[in-house]
Design a protein around this nucleic acid. Sequence first.
DNA 1: CTGAAAGCGCTAACAC
DNA 2: GTGTTAGCGCTTTCAG
Lengths: 321, 321
Amino acid sequence: MKDVASAAGVALKTVSRVVNGEPGVHPATADRVRAAIDRLGYSRNESARVLRRGRTATIGLVIEDVADPFYAGLSRAVESVAAAHGCLLLSGSSSEDPERERELVLTFCARRVDGLIVVPAGEDHSYLRPELDAGTPAVFVDRPPGPGIDVDTVLADNAGGAALATRHLVAHGHSRIAFLGDEPSIFTAARRLHGFRTALGHLYDERLVCMRSPALDTVRAALDRMLALDRPPTAVFTGNGRLTVTALRALAGRRGPAVVGFDDFELSDLLGVTVVAQDPARMGRVAAELLFRRLSGDTGPAEHPVLPVGLVPRGSGELPP
Amino acid sequence: MKDVASAAGVALKTVSRVVNGEPGVHPATADRVRAAIDRLGYSRNESARVLRRGRTATIGLVIEDVADPFYAGLSRAVESVAAAHGCLLLSGSSSEDPERERELVLTFCARRVDGLIVVPAGEDHSYLRPELDAGTPAVFVDRPPGPGIDVDTVLADNAGGAALATRHLVAHGHSRIAFLGDEPSIFTAARRLHGFRTALGHLYDERLVCMRSPALDTVRAALDRMLALDRPPTAVFTGNGRLTVTALRALAGRRGPAVVGFDDFELSDLLGVTVVAQDPARMGRVAAELLFRRLSGDTGPAEHPVLPVGLVPRGSGELPP
DNA sequence: CTGAAAGCGCTAACAC
DNA sequence: GTGTTAGCGCTTTCAG
């Protein structure tokens, strides 16, 4: 900036004014400055600007895994909202590792992101306390923060969605329904199991429940075990997109039970799989908009919108037992 | 840092030494400093550090769309390599818009990212010249830069893969093969068409070619038109993952032509679709590793690795005409 | 082993 | 309209 100033024969501050589009610069002077900028290939050093102004125009996004279509859709929506506010996105995947989550969040904070959007992997977020007190707003998405952290959250109606799918299967004549969910320590998995169990009432049978990460081997083993029972399940409700896909693979080629899944997935329509669909893009959008409201000064109490989920019948959930 | 220094009764520089793990601080002093840091909830201001040191420990990634599984997988791989080098990732989607690509790249540069990984949308990258000259390394992925920009590239064997698929269909008795590709202005689309055309030789018939973005309507219309010809195609080769999925939807329910696609996709195995698969994660990894080699001082001539693609027979491409 | 001083490139606050 | 000055929080350099 100093070089540009001397090249244009003006003071440094005038260059600053031109670069920032501030008013009060004579058009001719401004043109001279712009010419010098082009000639020298100057571009403003954003780090210095941030240091001085305190705002980075960057938000941090921590998700579980960008390669998962659910989180990819969510990311895209967050990015769009951020772009509309002239903000960039610093993002990272926690791989469901609480330590990595913490590291990413704290690194983002050290870089002075203006705000955070977090899909938490861990259960303890006391490490965020100083940052929140320092005024960095955070929105938790898909899963709530640990106890004692009172921030905005955007969650889906997990229990309600699971109950919806379960009642749908019962209405189609099923009374033996299996549930394949992710590790019960994961909030969404636990809530969906809860919804399933509540909706099923006395029909609930814990031998028809398996809560494990979605590896093909374990899913196949669980299904084999259940299908070999005296009264095998006539339907399977899978607790997330990954598990649905894995279960379909495990059941491929056999006239198996009816399958209904939580989360929609690519090609579910061609495969005719009935699902309870959430809208990851909407989740990301709502979270980002909430964050930007906080950034523009909204200091009201923490908000906790719950997004609806919808049943999409495609055939697999309407099969009779 | 000043506050921590006075709280610990040391000079600012000593705090700096402790924070950065520099040697030459008495253990007892260091402990006192660390105690003060915890008490005050201090965390280093990364912007100031960057301003002083010149390196941001951040790389910029511009892709077409994070919500596309291909780019999501690529992003994840880039992120892993970056994390292994202690680097964060600033990322953005260009939505196939050259102007947005330029804006993202230049914004990243203004933030002084250490390096860039770009899936270009545009054909003119002269705007990058000053940045490259200033020493910011860039790696182009999936598509090459416009003329006059001599940077590292990581491309797939697009023409070879297309030829492989085409010969596979010919070997299975097909002589009327259609090609559905993306806009011919997109590098990969053009190269794949070239491979298809070359492999087909005198069997090539331009009435069986349609180069358009993958919207369901246009794909359906193109297929309808081709299938109504005197000598309709007995096989369709689709030029990317999106087009494959769209074509499968358009053909759903009819005993249509054999379908082979470029790019693998989720559930291709269950649907039994033969594809020519690239490995997006590998592409991201190779690109990121190349970038970090540049960042650690490798100033050799630009490299241009070409990643192989592989035919995965799953049934759809092995159907007789 | 520890500290003082200079300055990274910019913007805010105030002159002129 | 334009210029001067101070200082954001840190690292670098050099001096004890």
